[in-house]
Amino acid sequence: MLIQQLVNGLTLGAVYTLIALSFSLVMGILGVLNLAIAELFMLGGYFGFAVLMAQLPLPLALIAGMAGAALVAAIVERIGYQPFRAAPVVTPMLSTLGFSIILQNVATNVWGSDPLQLTDEVLSGRFNIGPVSVSAIQLTVLGVTVLLVALLAFLVQRTSIGRALRAVAENRDVARLLGVPAGRITLIAFMLSGALAGAAGVLIGVHYAAITPYIGVEIGLKAIAVMVVGGTTRIWGALIAGPLMGVVEVMTVAYGGSQIRDFVVYGFMILILLLRPQGLLGGGRSDQGQRV
């Protein structure tokens, strides 16, 4: 029972990890809370569903979800972030909020407010390992998450784009003096972040075999809590915080009732904000404070 819940928690945690990484990519590099990510996650799910319903395979759905969400993220960056680069941090947050209102409304009108159900199972089959039963979908969610995180890590740590991203995160002006095209780099950061959110949307949609326009507010917002717990200045904090919060939430549902799970998740976030604002993995205090 306990181990079973652990597996379920890790699956949810994997999705949280992806969305939290999506939030913290933009937050860590630009210091901006992109509230539209919650809806990019939802949109990604719908794009993926559209592909699956056309009887196309899951990898294609994943790519469609990621590409679609990345495209929308690019629009958000051009209209909702670029013009407000010099404004106080609250302003770009509000403009991305505007996008999130638009995207949710569009999704409600295009696909309806009722949950969209997957008619036939994408992946069937379960594997029994001792007392634990893992479905093929859960394995897929975990596997895809690990793969995407590895890809992102490679991109950020080993490629020239990644170096440019880190340079802009460190100091935008100096990076520009050294010839980094900062405008293009922020666009790439937004699109990468959108792609991650889109992938998370497809995965959660396949996992629940259903999706609603409100899933962004229900799950996407909680990823902000996950990001905070992991630490907003180090994007890799999400790797620990995601699984942790997923397990905490599933355990709360299993042993405390499903009603108090939001209470526990957000309470955990506030506790971290107050006691350890740099997050679980954050460095010294000198690291933070400057971003806001």
Binding site: L221, I224, F263, L273, L274
Partner: peptide, 28 residues
């Protein structure tokens, strides 16, 4: 008192969490 040690976006996120906690509390 404790929350206002946080600034800008961090405070916004903390208050967001507070609001959701209150809603969740009344739900139960």
């Amino acid at each position: 008192f404790p929350a206002l040690r946080l600034k800008g976006i961090y405070l916004a996120m903390a208050t967001l969490g507070f609001g959701e906690m209150v809603r969740s509390f009344f739900q139960n």
